[in-house]
Measured scan of single mutants.
Amino acid sequence: MEQGTVKWFNAEKGFGFIERENGDDVFVHFSAIQGDGFKSLDEGQAVTFDVEEGQRGPQAANVQKA
């Protein structure tokens, strides 16, 4: 798993971006967030995640709040 920081996340649209430790950004969809209840992330929040190849390039999977 990688570690990163939430760059931004739009809860209304259900997606955002995580900044990886290497400085690259990776797309995150709310469906990739682990846990119960409303799935959202806060700007600046530390997270761990896997990276999978999506239809439009790399995207975060198995996102967990650190």
Results as ranks from 00 to 15, higher is better:
51 V>L: 11
46 A>S: 12
41 L>Q: 02
13 K>V: 08
14 G>E: 02
48 T>G: 04
51 V>C: 06
66 A>C: 10
56 R>N: 11
10 N>R: 10
5 T>G: 03
8 W>P: 00
49 F>N: 00
43 E>C: 10
7 K>R: 12
34 Q>R: 10
36 D>F: 12
24 D>T: 15
3 Q>A: 12
1 M>Y: 11
58 P>I: 10
49 F>T: 01
19 E>I: 15
62 N>A: 05
5 T>M: 10
12 E>F: 15
22 N>G: 11
50 D>C: 10
26 V>L: 13
42 D>I: 14
19 E>L: 15
56 R>Y: 15
26 V>H: 01
50 D>V: 13
24 D>Y: 11
65 K>I: 14
26 V>I: 12
3 Q>S: 13
15 F>P: 00
49 F>Y: 07
26 V>A: 03
52 E>P: 03
55 Q>R: 15
7 K>I: 06
49 F>K: 00
46 A>Q: 13
37 G>A: 07
28 V>N: 00
42 D>S: 14
1 M>G: 13
47 V>G: 00
9 F>T: 02
26 V>C: 05
29 H>Y: 05
23 G>T: 06
6 V>W: 03
35 G>D: 09
10 N>M: 06
39 K>R: 13
51 V>R: 04
15 F>Y: 15
27 F>P: 03
20 R>M: 08
38 F>K: 08
62 N>C: 06
38 F>C: 09
11 A>E: 08
9 F>Q: 01
54 G>E: 04
49 F>Q: 01
38 F>V: 09
56 R>M: 09
58 P>T: 09
48 T>E: 06
48 T>F: 13
50 D>P: 00
56 R>W: 15
44 G>H: 08
18 I>Y: 01
38 F>M: 07
19 E>S: 15
20 R>G: 05
39 K>M: 07
66 A>I: 14
35 G>S: 09
40 S>A: 09
16 G>M: 01
55 Q>W: 15
13 K>F: 09
14 G>W: 02
25 D>F: 11
44 G>K: 08
53 E>T: 12
61 A>C: 08
8 W>G: 02
19 E>N: 12
8 W>C: 06
59 Q>A: 07
2 E>V: 12
9 F>P: 00
40 S>C: 10
54 G>S: 11
58 P>Y: 11
65 K>A: 11
15 F>I: 08
7 K>V: 05
15 F>R: 02
48 T>R: 11
58 P>K: 11
33 I>C: 03
25 D>G: 05
17 F>M: 09
14 G>I: 02
28 V>R: 00
36 D>L: 11
27 F>N: 02
26 V>N: 01
43 E>G: 14
66 A>V: 15
64 Q>T: 10
52 E>W: 12
25 D>A: 09
24 D>P: 15
52 E>K: 12
10 N>I: 06
46 A>N: 09
21 E>M: 13
50 D>Q: 13
3 Q>C: 10
50 D>S: 15
43 E>Y: 15
64 Q>A: 10
51 V>E: 04
27 F>M: 03
57 G>E: 03
23 G>Q: 10
59 Q>L: 07
5 T>S: 09
54 G>W: 06
53 E>A: 11
21 E>V: 14
25 D>H: 11
36 D>K: 13
33 I>Q: 02
46 A>I: 12
38 F>T: 07
10 N>E: 04
27 F>S: 02
62 N>E: 03
32 A>D: 06
8 W>K: 04
31 S>I: 05
9 F>E: 00
47 V>N: 01
42 D>V: 14
43 E>R: 15
31 S>A: 07
10 N>G: 03
63 V>F: 01
39 K>Y: 06
39 K>D: 05
8 W>F: 08
57 G>V: 04
4 G>F: 01
63 V>C: 04
16 G>D: 00
41 L>E: 02
7 K>H: 06
53 E>D: 11
6 V>K: 01
19 E>T: 15
19 E>D: 08
2 E>N: 11
55 Q>M: 13
54 G>L: 07
22 N>W: 10
56 R>P: 06
32 A>V: 06
5 T>L: 10
